[in-house]
Design a protein around this nucleic acid. Structure first.
Lengths: 218, 218
DNA sequence: CTATTGACTGAACGGCTAGTCAGTAGTATT
DNA sequence: AATACTACTGACTAGCCGTTCAGTCAATAG
């Protein structure tokens, strides 16, 4: 006689909702204060909840943080897959991926999370797994778009996997520079670098990317 | 205790030597345990010294860590400058820089330090300054070699600064991948990527780098 | 010689924080 | 209505860790 109807007020739903709320709060707090300075009490305060409740839903702080990283990674991968699935030429879809990679502005701090996670991932295998999945998805999707572009005759590239790894690596490194020293690397310059290097990898004139109209028009 | 070999007996020298010893121990311990898990007591133990002595030479733990990062960065920059100063064609010197960038083996963990430092640098400006100097030196030196190669007629590149930024970024990103998931990125593949992308940036056939006979390196 | 300074020790302090637990209120079950 | 269960609270605890400090010993100065 379980209340299988799944009404919004059911206890199972309430618990799931609270868990999601705590994960989201954890993400916000970690972005704001950094992983090393984030306390369980900070996350509790950000949710207007007692400290004890955190440990009712998550056995340890590590569990909470790890699940937060996992859910963030999964949602990034999901959005990325949506973005490449949208219609367009391979050039358009590839450029969309590049623009999605790069923080929209200085206030977009989502990359800070991964800088923190890299440092933790060096020591903790379960975090490393999440990072590997995220980076693997990026490379796989980049390689897929390139392969499709080659098949469509848009690109010339005899090693799409290698090209994807190089592009992904370059973006990672440049975003670090952008995140850490925004004064020395504007978003425009970052995007320019991404497009120049990508154009070379797929055998196009860099202007092909640069000159694309910013939004659909006409 | 021991008063060294005679000339090094003075108290000022003793203090300097102890400071250097503590910095070096701090570096070893941080590489081994990670920045977040490094305790003052760990560094004291690694030096066979009391915990109190650390604070006799360094006001706070942060001071010690920051100075350790600074001295490590400075010595890396110094070695890098030596490497480019050695004679050879621009191709040879550029390839030497690439090989110096990439960890010699899995046991070369020096990059772990910078992964930790990136995460800290997001929050702390004095660490960020050190990172900016280090990355700036790399880019400046890469751009210098490329410019010289262009002048010598070896390279074709109309934007050496941009090329250096892209190469530096790609190396950073790929080394992260190598450090975190060595199973997915061998040193050979990393070096291959570096050479392919660099060759494209300076207008050479990638085989130019690949086919060079292995030169004894430091 | 005595006085002073500098390097160093080891114990102790105090602030901080992850995790615990007994209790409460509200909801589903019988 | 009585019972059982679930989400939640807030006070508490245990232990970690940076920092301090009184005191020791050797080297140097006067």
């Amino acid at each position: 006689m379980q209340s299988g109807g799944g009404a919004r007020g059911s206890r199972a739903d309430q618990a799931d909702q609270r868990r999601a709320e705590l994960l989201e709060a954890a993400r916000r707090v970690v972005l704001e204060r950094g992983l090393a300075s984030t306390r369980v009490a900070d996350i509790a305060r950000a949710t207007n909840v007692s400290g004890g409740l955190i440990h009712y839903h998550f056995a340890t702080k590590d569990d909470l943080i790890t699940e937060m990283l996992r859910s963030t990674s999964e949602s990034e991968i999901h959005r990325l897959r949506e973005i490449v699935a949208e219609p367009g030429t391979a050039v358009e879809r590839l450029d969309r991926v590049l623009r999605f990679y790069i923080p929209a502005s200085r206030s977009d701090q989502s990359w800070i999370l991964w800088l923190d996670a890299w440092a933790v991932g060096v020591r903790e295998a379960h975090v490393r797994v999440i990072l590997l999945e995220l980076e693997g998805a990026w490379i796989e999707i980049l390689a897929g778009v390139i392969t499709q572009g080659v098949a469509a005759g848009e690109f010339a590239c005899d090693d799409p996997q290698g090209a994807a790894e190089r592009i992904d690596g370059m973006l990672d490194g440049l975003v670090v520079r952008y995140t850490l020293h925004a004064g020395n690397m504007s978003r425009g310059r970052l995007l320019h670098h991404a497009r120049v290097a990508t154009a070379r990898e797929v055998g196009l004139d860099p202007a092909t990317f640069e000159d694309r109209p910013p939004v659909s028009e006409s």
